[in-house]
Design a binder for these strands. Structure first.
Length: 654
RNA sequence: CGGGAAGUGGCGCAGUUUGGUUAGCGCGCUGCGUUCGGGACGCAGAGGUCGGGGGUUCAAAUCCCCCCUUCCCGACCA
């Protein structure tokens, strides 16, 4: 596959550039080009700043052609930082930059950077010089594209028989695709398969700003079904929804030390609004603990005000280095629950209760088996006492964190002064939890279940559960079949099945079969004249079975159960896959080889020392995904041989 | 931030090395017709600031300079 670009209409690309000066601008990091740095916050240095070229707040930035990047740590005396000190990462990057620039105490790094690289034109010349493979199309002698070449027919048939898709490469070794709707094979190039399936199934495409995404109707419908599954469980466990603002005054975020240190590098800040520089920059929320706990301070006086059990559905922004549709985007959608309690045990129970809600939704609704447990110190949420997580295994052998629930202790209550008078008449800090589940899980569903033909969606969350594809030749047949399809549609949808009739005239049935398989619809019904006459339909589940004719009455009566079969099959296959790819780690070397090979989950005793944890990560690029709660800590650490304090599950993760 | 690849109709690309008629091809799209049980075909059409800005030239998609954007790998990352 070549590069995959967001399909930006040229007109719009142009327009974007010549657009009117925006009323406010967002920059990454705590950067304001004309002002001294706001005190107290560390300066992240690893992110790019949007330049004045792309976002021309011209009146304010005139004369600042160079990138308006200010780096606190280039200044003398900045090393001590504010009261909160530096984030580790910022410090590290700082060292690196000083090397590059000969230690110059520069406040602004301008185009000098650029000269370190080869000019784009030169790079393009180099590329042009390299001979590429010839253009390949699936073309017969007549110049037609379609219609497999003679040799392909047998292969295609064999492929289909095996449940796979027809061979789609013209020559061995040619990785290019001839058609936008053909998918790369999952086994050959998983990342390419992922991007293509997301696009071709109509789930999402790239946005216009770096790392953003446009969630299309089909992808959003999938998310809405996940939302519904979560939301009704939140309500059932006593929570209410509310909404806090997108913008958070900068000072608010600074109060919890670990929290700000964890998030500072990936925060976006608004410094201009209404054409003027703001007195106090506004953070675009990366999460809402700061603003919510600030508010809880006003809401809580006595133990009678507790617990507070709130959730919000919203977007958050985190400036990420590398992004992938759904899995890691600069802006994403999620829910964040925030609760406050009078007693520690109660908060701890709440965190575990919501972890269980996440487990249930992942397994019962998304059909993704997950491991539950707590995170190691280095992986936990900044500001939490304990982070719990559910962790799933994707079909490429990498793990995906599917949801997190945090026991916050009194950390945020102390930072934001949330105190209450207890029954004994004493002032006490409240105990907190927070928990989140995001659109990332759309990516999880894709990667946990998808196959070479495309998505396979669990029926409980599939936007379309059943698609009816009518088949006909003449006009008479057409109306006969479409009438029968409409009757079937009415009957199924009357039973609560999400069903659609694909009556598009411009595509033939075969095309529709492939398209709906790509889109992961759990059950397809083929309905032709022969079926109508026999009062039957052909039923084709996306997972777990072949085609079979069924009497119309049976289709109507049996559909709910068949959908459940698909749901079960997907879960079963995912569970079998996980079990086949979960290994006991006897020692570091075995683990390294295994992870290097097929990936998977590697379980082994761990002494609890961060040094051992880092050593494994250095050697294998795997991290501790979870420390299962119920496992005993028998054995000795796979790294150092000391007695274990926990069993750890290791994997390379998304 | 380091390394690599790329920007030409909606999508995928050719053309750039060696500047020169009117910028091509496939898919998709529109209309009509024939088709329709596993990705149909014919005919006719529509659609392009060659990423942006400068420069060189009689002449620039093509040469030079600057800039922007995207993708991949690494570093980084809840």
């Amino acid at each position: 596959m070549g590069n995959i670009r967001p399909p930006i209409p040229r007109g719009q690309r142009h327009e974007r550039r010549s657009a009117k000066v925006p009323r406010c601008s967002t920059t990454s990091g705590w950067i304001s080009p004309r002002r001294p740095q706001a005190p107290g916050l560390p300066q992240p240095s690893r992110h790019r700043t949007m330049s004045s070229h792309a976002y021309p707040h011209r009146p304010l930035l005139r004369g600042h052609r160079a990138r308006p990047r200010l780096r606190r740590h280039h200044r003398p005396g900045a090393g001590g930082g504010g009261a909160l000190g530096y984030p580790r990462r910022a410090r590290h990057r700082g060292r690196r930059r000083r090397r590059l620039h000969g230690g110059a105490q520069r406040a602004r790094v301008g185009p000098a950077d650029r000269h370190l690289h080869r000019p784009a034109a030169a790079r393009q010349r180099d590329a042009a010089a390299a001979p590429g493979p010839g253009r390949v199309g699936r073309r017969g002698p007549s110049g037609r594209r379609r219609g497999p070449a003679a040799g392909d027919v047998a292969a295609g048939a064999a492929d289909r028989a095996a449940g796979g898709r027809r061979a789609r490469r013209d020559r061995p070794g040619d990785r290019r695709l001839t058609m936008p709707e053909r998918l790369p094979r999952q086994s050959e190039d998983f990342p390419a398969w992922y991007v293509e399936v997301v696009k071709q199934a109509g789930l999402a495409e790239h946005g216009y700003a770096r790392g953003t995404q446009i969630i299309k109707a089909y992808g959003y419908a999938l998310w809405e079904n996940m939302q519904a599954a979560l939301d009704r469980r939140f309500k059932a466990t006593g929570h209410e929804n509310l909404y806090f603002p997108l913008f958070i005054p900068q000072h608010m975020l600074e109060r919890e030390a670990e929290h700000v240190e964890g998030f500072a590098p990936e925060v976006a800040v608004v410094t201009y609004g209404g054409g003027e520089e703001l007195d106090e920059p506004l953070i675009v929320r990366p999460t809402s603990e700061a603003i919510i706990w600030s508010t809880y301070a006003r809401w809580v006086q006595s133990y009678r005000d507790l617990p507070l059990l709130y959730n919000q559905w919203c977007n958050v922004v985190r400036w990420e280095m590398r992004t992938r549709l759904f899995l890691r985007t600069s802006e994403f959608l999620w829910q964040e629950g925030h609760t406050a309690h009078a007693r520690a045990e109660e908060a701890r129970e709440e965190a575990l209760r919501m972890l269980e809600v996440y487990r249930e939704v992942a397994e019962d609704e998304l059909a993704i088996p997950v491991l539950t447990g707590r995170k190691s110190e280095s992986e936990k949420f900044p500001g939490a006492v304990t982070t719990y997580a559910i962790e799933g295994l994707m079909r490429d052998g990498r793990a995906l964190q599917c949801g997190t629930s945090h026991f916050l202790g009194q950390n945020f209550a102390r930072a934001y002064d949330v105190r209450f008078l207890n029954a004994a008449g004493e002032q006490e800090y409240a105990w907190g939890t927070s928990w989140g589940f995001s659109t990332r899980m759309v990516g999880g569903v894709i990667m946990a279940h998808g196959d070479d033909a495309g998505l396979r969606l669990p029926p409980r969350i599939a936007p379309v559960q059943v698609v009816i594809v009518p088949i006909y030749r003449s006009d008479a047949e057409r109306s006969e079949v479409l009438e029968a399809a409409a009757r079937l549609h009415a009957a199924l949808s009357g039973n609560g099945v999400r069903v659609r009739v694909d009556d598009r005239d411009q595509y033939r049935p075969g095309h529709k079969f492939n398209e709906w398989e790509l889109k992961g619809v759990p059950i397809r019904i083929e309905l032709g004249p022969r079926d109508v006459r026999a009062d039957q339909a052909v039923v084709v589940p996306r997972a777990g079975g072949g085609k079979r004719p069924e009497a119309t009455a049976a289709v109507i009566a049996g559909m709910a159960a068949w959908l459940e079969d698909v749901q079960r099959t997907l879960y079963r296959e995912a569970l079998d896959f996980r079990e086949a790819n979960t290994h006991e780690a006897p020692d570091l070397a075995t683990m390294r080889d295994g992870i290097e090979g097929d990936g998977g989950l590697w379980v082994g005793p761990w002494c609890g020392d961060e040094e051992c944890e880092h050593k494994v990560t250095e050697e294998t690029r795997a991290t501790i995904r979870v420390l299962p709660l119920d496992d005993d800590a028998a054995g000795t650490c796979v790294v150092c041989g000391r007695p274990a304090t926990a069993r750890a599950v290791w994997a390379r993760a998304y």
